[in-house]
């Protein structure tokens, strides 16, 4: 996952977790960790997002990451075919080590660079369909779809929690019930869940 520095996943992460950083064309900033509160179904949910970058050298680390997360974003660069070609390996790894319930979203990043596109949108869609992932093209530069990508992933996790797929009492899933939030009108037991999708990125 972490072989491709040009993928810009840490920029996606910063874009999502800190709105105050406006995307500017001559500046690339990324972070490896970020947290943000979102509201789904009137319930406050805290997302913690960890980037797994640079840890591919150690098998133990990647393994552990997969397991501790409720969701993952699989990011490739639409201007670089090689990043797309490595998705299969990454996904196999993720599926092998992760909880089978982990929500995985496929992200084709840098959708702003249409002229240098190497991977067609249809290819991404086909890959996602084949492997049962949710697919989306984003741009950390223009912030297009960034919000949607993370929130959709969180929504799917949330749905799984509602369905009882995730055992929320088991923190090994990467989900934790927080103290009750006195959110306006929200019923008791609102899960202030810290779903922690690592920016599992290629």
């Amino acid at each position: 996952m972490l072989l491709f520095s040009g993928v810009g996943k840490s920029c996606l992460l910063l874009q999502f977790t800190d709105k105050r950083f406006q995307p500017v064309h001559d500046l690339t900033i990324g972070v490896e960790f970020g947290a943000r509160m979102i509201t789904i179904d009137g319930k406050q949910i805290k997302l913690q997002i960890w980037d797994t970058a640079g840890q591919e050298a150690f098998r133990s680390i990647t393994r552990s990451y997969y397991r501790g997360a409720a969701g993952a974003l699989l990011v490739y660069d639409i201007t670089r075919r090689d990043t797309f070609n490595h998705l299969t390996t990454w996904l196999e790894d993720a599926r092998q080590h992760s909880n089978s319930n982990m929500v995985i979203m496929l992200i084709g990043n840098k959708s702003d660079l249409e002229s240098r596109r190497e991977v067609k949108k249809e290819e991404g869609e086909a890959f996602a369909r084949e492997h049962g992932l949710v697919f989306m093209e984003t741009s950390a530069k223009t912030a297009a779809n960034v919000e949607e990508a993370f929130i959709n992933t969180a929504k799917e996790i949330y749905e799984k929690i509602q369905e009882g797929v995730f055992d929320i009492n088991n923190e090994a899933n990467g989900i934790k019930i927080g103290p009750q939030h006195g959110g306006a009108g929200s019923g008791g037991g609102a899960p202030g869940a810290g779903g922690a999708p690592p920016g599992g990125c290629c």
Partner: peptide, 19 residues
């Protein structure tokens, strides 16, 4: 640490140090 992500970070760090 009870938080698994913290434990992972510690392990990563130690490995990076030994390296």
């Amino acid at each position: 640490h009870p938080e698994s992500m913290v434990r992972i970070a510690v392990r990563t760090l130690t490995l990076n140090v030994y390296k």
